[in-house]
């Protein structure tokens, strides 16, 4: 049996470049208005998976992502870097999912890929910073979780040894398999694309993407079935619809406020020697410093 590693990854809006139309009226994110990137810590997770594959030749790395059609981009990106294949979980029914509904859908997809040995994801995604989906998916799968992983020290068919990066130091833990691991940003960065893989997978497409292609790829895909990225809907996962999307999400957004700045009476000053000296004298005089 192959050693199966499932990497959970998310395509996220680049929150460093947020415009005014970033939010919809219902308080959810308007993803279409933002540049989309491979969530940074999920790339660290991919690297951990690929480095296991380096050591265990019979290992396979499968990328699993949930999102809109364009999220297939990160599956291709993972394949260019060494993942064997990927699946896109996509359905309108998933829209508005909070972490609980997301982990429900992800756990169903992971179960569809059983038997597996490891489920690896980034610790958290930059659009929410919750760090909840990893542990919640682990719980739904009924497997142990190792969060804040920095390095996988050793792995075989039965167990894994992982170094964790905590606030106050490090911890080395041993776990039975299968297990879920969330990878911390202090882990090694992901390797770059491999030219050979880029050539091999550059025509990899989902069914939806193929329908939008003007060229007919039928022949190519008959020759190279590995180019087809499978899409899974809620129905493919046998998901209960009340557990999905907004209805499956116990957290509701009551209110969104744009940030309003409380205006203090700020004294604006220049940087001349005289002004800086005056300020330092004032701070010393009022015993704030010195």
């Amino acid at each position: 049996m192959r050693f199966r590693i499932i990497v959970l990854a998310k395509q996220v809006p680049d929150t460093r470049n947020v415009g005014k139309d970033a939010m919809k009226a219902d308080g959810t994110v308007n993803r279409a208005a933002l540049p989309a990137i491979f969530n940074p810590e999920d790339l660290h997770a991919l690297e951990q998976a690929l480095s296991i594959k380096d050591k265990l030749p019979h290992a396979e790395v499968i990328l699993l992502t949930m999102g809109p059609f364009r999220a297939a981009e990160i599956i291709r990106e993972a394949m260019y870097r060494g993942a064997d294949r990927g699946y896109l979980i996509t359905d309108r029914k998933f829209a508005g999912s909070d972490t609980l509904a997301t982990s429900y859908a992800l756990s169903l997809a992971v179960k569809k890929l059983a038997p597996y040995h490891l489920v690896i994801s980034g610790r958290q995604a930059i659009d929410g910073d919750t760090a909840q989906v990893g542990p919640q998916t682990a719980e739904k799968l009924g497997i142990p979780q190792i969060t804040y992983a920095e390095e996988i020290l050793s792995v075989d068919a039965k167990k894994i040894i992982v170094k964790r990066r905590l606030e106050m130091g490090v911890e080395v833990v041993n776990s039975t398999l299968p297990a879920a691991i969330t990878v911390h940003g202090s882990a090694p960065v992901c390797r770059q694309r491999v030219a050979k893989l880029l050539m091999k997978y550059k025509h990899a497409r989902t069914v939806t993407e193929l329908q939008n292609e003007t060229k007919d790829y039928t022949e190519l895909y008959n020759d190279r079935p590995y180019l087809l990225i499978e899409e899974w809907t809620a129905e493919d996962l046998n998901a209960q619809s009340e557990m999905l999307g907004l209805s499956g999400s116990p957290t509701k957004v009551k209110k969104i406020e744009n940030v309003v700045f409380q205006h203090k009476d700020s004294k604006v000053m220049g940087s001349s020697d005289k002004e800086i000296e005056g300020l330092m004298q004032e701070l010393i005089g009022s015993h704030i410093i010195g």
Binding site: D129, T130, A131, Q132, A138, E139, K140, S249, T251
Partner: peptide, 18 residues
């Protein structure tokens, strides 16, 4: 941040981080 999501998932209840 390790235990709360695990518990929330098992109880199927909402959790807000940070």
């Amino acid at each position: 941040r390790d235990i709360a999501p695990r518990v929330a998932s098992a109880l199927r209840c909402g959790l807000t981080a940070d």
